[in-house]
């Protein structure tokens, strides 16, 4: 039972990342009709927002280490610590959560530039061409990041206070010793909050209503004299923010390198397809569902039963779904059923 709960939890944090990326993907597809293969790169850029902020905060000065007396030793001390003392080191400690503040405007800007600069010319082209051009863009973004930050994963630790594990066994009255890293719990909660914000935004604001109307029937909304194009561009920006935030918060779980996005992209696409192209609740549900499935498949008991299942489970599910129910779990009838 404990192992069961633990596996579900294990799946949920990864599922949260899948859900966030898939949410953006399907939002873009539903509004602009564009298949964005560069969405994984946006996730990666978000992660590197956190890396750059961390690098920026830990800019250091070499100071002579007084504790070493035999020879001249120098240690790196960040400027922030020199200027603000303990407050400074606390700021450094909280680099990852703080980068959310940096990531929101940066990702919005990147999203808007991408949409206006490239995507808008591809509304009317075929899906194949959209895939190809965004694939090219993803490579370009990756390589730029690689040339700036190098090819190795950059460790970006979580704040020390949440570095340990939560004793969820004690919290929920399960067996003792069921522990789970704090940060993964935070990630799960964070992704749920972001998803809730996006849904609330679309559901309860006028802007969101127009966007939903545009997704249903773009032409009619346009005929009502509403500039639907501008709103869709903003939606693209929002999708970029969501992917970026997913990336920022994922850095303590997995030190980011330049091709982290590609791995998530392929899986997120599968998630979108399983959930139903263009369906927002579908993307979220499928994201968490596949995350959990994957974590169950990586249990030793399951792996002993069917070797290699953990490597292919998600793709297997996608294949079955596409063949049996091509519109996906929650997809609307008739949308992209080809």
């Amino acid at each position: 039972m404990d192992a069961f709960v633990l596996q579900i939890l294990n799946g949920l944090d990864k599922g949260g990342a899948y859900a966030l990326i898939a949410l953006g993907l399907t939002l873009i597809f539903g509004t602009l009709g564009v298949v964005n293969f560069a969405h994984g790169a946006l996730f990666m850029l978000g992660a590197f927002c956190a890396v750059s902020l961390q690098k920026l905060l830990t800019l250091s000065q070499q100071i002579k280490d007084e504790s070493v007396t035999f020879f001249d030793a120098y240690k790196e001390v960040p400027y922030l610590e020199i200027w603000f003392g303990d407050t400074g080191s606390m700021i450094i400690d909280y680099a990852v959560p703080l980068s959310i503040l940096l990531a929101i405007p940066v990702m919005l800007l990147i999203g808007l530039v991408m949409e206006r600069g490239l995507i808008q010319y591809f509304y009317k082209r075929t899906h194949a061409e959209q895939i190809l051009v965004t694939f090219g863009l993803a490579i370009v973004l990756q390589e730029i990041v690689k040339s700036v930050f190098g090819a190795n994963p950059v460790p970006t630790p979580a704040p020390e206070i949440v570095a340990g594990s939560a004793d969820i066994g004690a919290m929920f009255g399960l067996g003792a010793g069921v522990v789970y890293p704090w940060w993964r719990l935070i990630y799960l909660v964070f992704s749920l909050i972001v998803i809730a914000i996006v849904f609330a935004f679309l559901q309860f604001t006028t802007f969101g209503m127009v966007v939903r109307a545009g997704m249903a029937d773009r032409e009619t909304v346009g005929l009502l004299g509403i500039n639907i194009q501008r709103r869709f561009t903003i939606v693209f920006g929002i999708a970029a923010i969501v992917a970026g935030l997913a990336g920022v918060m994922y850095t303590p779980i997995l030190p980011p390198d330049y091709h982290i996005g590609m791995e998530f992209l392929v899986l997120s696409f599968v998630v979108v397809v399983v959930g139903g192209m263009g369906s927002l609740p579908g993307a979220v549900t499928a994201g968490f569902l596949l995350g959990i499935l994957q974590s169950f498949a990586s249990m030793t008991e399951v792996k002993d039963l069917i070797p290699g299942i953990d490597q292919i489970i998600i793709y297997l599910v996608a294949v079955v779904i596409l063949l049996v129910r091509p519109r996906g779990l929650l997809g609307r009838k008739g949308v992209m059923e080809g």
């Binding site: 696409f269 397809v273 490597q311 793709y315 294949v319 596409l322 091509p326 992209m336």
Partner: peptide, 26 residues
């Protein structure tokens, strides 16, 4: 059995499966 983007994703899924399996079980 599928066309367009679904076909692309299906082939991608199969290729990734083969790649992952080649690295692990196979």
């Amino acid at each position: 059995r599928r066309t367009g983007i679904y076909f692309a994703i299906l082939t991608l899924a199969f290729a990734q499966m083969s790649y992952n399996l080649a690295y692990s079980v196979l």
